[in-house]
Write a protein that binds this DNA or RNA. Structure first.
Ligand SMILES: [Mn+2]
Ligand SMILES: [Mn+2]
Ligand SMILES: [Mn+2]
Ligand SMILES: [Mn+2]
Lengths: 162, 162
DNA sequence: CGTGAAAGATAGCCAGTGCTATACCTTCTG
DNA sequence: CAGAAGGTATAGCACTGGCTATCTTTCACG
């Protein structure tokens, strides 16, 4: 810690902005936990995007080939292969060499969940005045950091707006 | 590519995000560009969080020590040291061994921008019905993926709501 | 003052996610 | 039905961002 100061109250230092709120100490640990959660979300983000995309490809083309996955993700083919290896390791997908990629039950469930969330967020952004293409771009990153609680709030907003 | 399908327009797909030009929809490339942008946002996210935090620490304690940075980020001290090395490499911060970390003009500007955006997003989430602590957590990840366009939409919403 | 505890730097490990180059397998086509 | 073409796997490199262990420096206090 910086200096010693009278210590003891440092435990109650609140995060950046507030300074105006009266109560809620927001201990140091809370902020660290938030960063940890964001890091965790990030580590899951790639899995989510791949799984959603593989589901899309099956729906559109009847199969998900590595080359298509790589092209749509905007990465080189070996990068996609490596990501698919991780999906398999985590029980989200299977694949037979030179044959394509398939989602497991878990992977399929994740894909549905992720796709639904993606659509809600895009619809919500458009509803608050963001142009569709911008909404689509921002949603691709935002989606991985929106909690169930926030997602519900977005859905409420969309429902009430009509 | 899987199957042959219509192809033919694939020849015109250009790499990299030229964006802004109204010509040709080419949805395939668009999606790849969106993923690329999300990846880019992620690579900047850590810098943004550190820079904002260093600014906060200077405001609260008069200095930013590595131990404080590490504690608030929820990482081990060498991890913070390594991140600070990257900040220095990118011209956002300086530091003197065993002394503390200081933001450059660029770093300071980024901190202000990032802090303002962070607050706007938290306020916006609260305004649509997300509890404060959840808003604070989700914002920590979301903030790095919100474009200027979307941020403006959030600000409009906050202004009109009253 | 001197010194020990705390802060910071450094070394080295690991996993993840990019990349290129190249070898291998399948498929299409003449 | 033999290649050629193209899709896929593999090897190997770079960089980021975690970690622990350990060494060095600073500074507060006895
Ligand atoms: Mn995404
Ligand atoms: Mn998505
Ligand atoms: Mn953040
Ligand atoms: Mn923030």
């Amino acid at each position: 810690m910086a200096k010693k100061l009278s210590l003891g109250y440092k435990v109650f230092l609140t995060h950046s902005g507030n300074l105006n709120m009266p109560t809620s100490p927001t201990p140091l640990q809370d902020q660290a936990d938030r960063f940890a959660r964001a890091r965790e979300a990030q580590s899951v983000a790639l899995l989510e995007d791949y799984v959603e995309l593989i589901g899309d490809l099956h729906a559109e083309l009847g199969e998900a080939r590595v080359a298509d996955i790589a092209q749509r993700m905007g990465v080189a083919q070996p990068t996609a292969t490596k990501a698919i290896a991780r999906l398999k390791r985590e029980g989200l997908a299977t694949s037979r060499p030179y044959r394509g990629v398939f989602l497991t039950e878990d992977g399929s469930a994740m894909a549905d969940r992720v796709r639904s969330r993606h659509r809600t967020i895009v619809a919500f952004l458009i509803a608050v005045g963001v142009p569709e293409d911008v909404a689509e771009t921002d949603a691709e990153g935002i989606e991985h950091h929106v909690s169930g609680h926030t997602l519900k709030a977005f859905e409420r907003f969309l429902a009430q707006r009509d």
